[in-house]
């Protein structure tokens, strides 16, 4: 049992080590940090700067969180605190269904709807010309994909808060909204952070839907209306192709390792925040 428990932790380590071993050829030629922070990506000339991809990943994820967190939290609050039972029971299965849709469907839908929306309406509104294949389009599609996760985890969290605690606040003459703000959200803070982290992890790793709408331009995005090229898309598009280019394979392995490191970093960060919140609320 103990051995079995150790397997997952061991696997993560094994994957990470494996990726770095395969990335050794490129690390032998150039220092790790110059690869990480260089913006030059032209494999034929031997330039493998990963910075645009790292930033592409961070941008898309950030945009999706900015869009998804407020909307999902307010939805969860409405469903748990305000909506009549019938609405809640009708909506919950639909939200759970959204979580199970294959991501390629979100991708196709993004190409058909979100990309033109960004290209023809949102970008011109801000006075920018854009094809629509942008970081923003990626962020929107991703946001819609992580709604269900954040909503259903938050709903679980809210329903674990005893009704009597809300009653205590109401009986002091607090309005429903005051009760939500000071009691429900406060008591549920820990769980809400966990919900957001779950959404975040999904956003980092999501490949298919994002790569279909984000433009895949290996250049540093300067605004949400630029195209981007997140790490997962880089791997999915290029692994197995162009392998004749020297060091390409090693560069992609390094990209994979970096993606893994980024995800690990944010997970650890979230865990630390959780521990602090826990200690304060104890």
């Amino acid at each position: 049992m103990l051995v079995l428990t150790c397997v997952p932790a061991f696997l993560v380590l094994l994957i990470l080590v494996g990726l770095f071993v395969r990335a050794r050829p490129i690390l032998a030629e150039k220092p790790f940090f110059s690869l990480l922070f260089s913006s030059a990506w032209s494999p034929l000339k031997g330039d493998f700067g990963l910075f645009p991809f790292i930033m592409g990943t961070l941008w898309v994820t950030f945009v999706s969180l900015v869009l998804a967190v407020p909307v999902s939290l307010l939805t969860a609050v409405f469903l748990s605190e305000y909506a009549p039972r019938s609405v809640r029971e009708f909506t919950k299965p639909i939200i759970d269904l959204l979580a199970g849709l294959p991501s390629v469907i979100y991708g196709v839908w993004g190409v058909l709807l979100v990309v033109p929306l960004v290209g023809r309406i949102i970008a011109p509104f801000f006075g920018v010309t854009s094809s629509g294949y942008t970081v923003l389009a990626g962020g929107i599609v991703l946001a819609i994909m992580i709604f269900p996760t954040i909503i259903s985890v938050s709903l679980e969290v809210f329903s674990s808060i005893p009704y009597q605690m809300r009653e205590a606040s109401l009986s002091l003459g607090a309005t429903k909204w005051e009760t939500v703000r000071h009691v429900v959200l406060k008591k549920g803070l820990q769980g809400i952070i966990a919900a957001i982290v779950l959404g975040l992890s999904r956003a980092f790793g999501e490949t298919m839907a994002v790569l279909m709408v984000v433009g895949n331009i290996p250049r540093l995005p300067r605004s949400v209306f630029d195209g981007g090229y997140p790490l997962p898309a880089l791997l999915a598009n290029n692994y197995g192709e162009m392998m004749s280019v020297p060091l390409y394979d090693a560069a992609l392995m390094l990209a994979a390792a970096v993606l893994l490191l980024v995800v690990l970093f944010f997970n650890v960060l979230a865990r630390l925040i959780l521990v602090r919140v826990e200690r304060r609320a104890a």
């Binding site: 009597q164 605690m165 009653e167 205590a168 009986s171 009691v183 008591k187």
Partner: peptide
């Protein structure tokens, strides 16, 4: 009205 419930419910603060 002030309410005392069956189990005391301190608010999370």
């Amino acid at each position: 009205m002030g309410l005392l419930s069956q189990r005391p419910q301190p608010l999370p603060m």
